[in-house]
Design a protein around this nucleic acid. Structure first.
Lengths: 167, 167
DNA sequence: CCGAGATGTTTGCCTGTTCAAACACTTCGG
DNA sequence: CCGAAGTGTTTGAACAGGCAAACATCTCGG
């Protein structure tokens, strides 16, 4: 661990670009949504997930998993959106422990109002600037990294160095 | 604006993957650094920038710009790092308004201790999983998006619809 | 049918972030 | 050389998010 392979200049460039891109993209979309629809990008993603769910309702855990939110984060986000009237919560009829988050009429109206502008913004800064091949490359690359993250998590969870399999 | 071109399934997949990837990568690296070096990814980037700067010192504004930090965010981050002894601040000799942030000895030691593990982690989840072509594709794609973001910012700053140029 | 452990959700506390306003110094036209 | 406008930095107040502990409910083995 004292002397790893450092990043090559190309790798470093890709890495810095990627980090900057994530930050700035998120900032840009946050601004756009804040200005045009008085909500954050995180709120938008949450409402968007609900809007495409069957019955426009999803269990809290499932929703948190989709959004990559902490459970406590989701709880608070849903409470805020509930106070604003865009989301309603009810108990999961199938499991008394669970809660369902459900999009209200007002929530659907908000999405109907916000979605076009948001999609236009995403198109403007991302997809209209990329060729179809690049879109596909991006999808592949990110999927690869996601898989490798999942792999890393699993390896970390089972501390290894105790190789059960090769007895 | 009432009916934009929606995202195609491929675009949507690339988009969701990208967002998930940003979030999870950042979480992963945050965890790794917090565990192995008791700092955050944001702190690491800050110290890393200083460590490669001439004299290991950089003006606050310049540093903020490089890191894509708000100025106030940078101020507070530097104050924290100063309290921990990793950074020192002094007035910019060339401009009495400016402050310089400078890496201390302790800061350099921290980086020497943390950097190998961090680079290894980045390699593990990103670059070891990608082919050289993919690294190049990623660099190109992110650079393209960054350029288009910059473009969009400029257009928003000069509200347009008042085309000075075509008189 | 009971209790232990698993699973789902929320809460308390603390840290980090933002926005806007304040503050400090510099520059430049008159 | 003065003061207004510009640039660089910090501060105050409010809020979002993470972690760990608490709470609620379910599931099973005995």
């Amino acid at each position: 661990m004292t002397s790893p392979r450092w990043l090559t200049p190309e790798e470093l460039r890709a890495w810095i670009n990627f980090l900057d891109c994530s930050t700035l993209l998120n900032d840009y979309l946050d601004q756009q949504l804040r200005r045009d629809a008085a909500m954050t990008h995180a709120d938008y993603s949450l409402l968007a997930r609900l809007s495409v769910a069957p019955d426009r309702a999803l269990g809290m855990s499932l929703l948190a998993e989709q959004l990559k939110f902490t459970r406590s984060r989701l709880t608070r986000a849903v409470i805020r959106l509930e106070e604003s009237g865009y989301v309603r919560r009810r108990e999961d009829p199938a499991d008394g422990r669970g809660q369902l988050a459900e999009l209200t009429e007002a929530g659907m109206e908000l999405m109907a109002k916000a979605a076009p502008g948001h999609v236009t913004a995403v198109r403007r800064v991302v997809f209209d600037a990329l060729s179809p091949e690049q879109v596909e490359q991006l999808a592949t690359i990110t999927a690869t990294v996601l898989a490798s993250l999942k792999q890393a998590d699993e390896e970390d969870a089972y501390p290894a160095a105790l190789p059960w399999h090769r007895r």
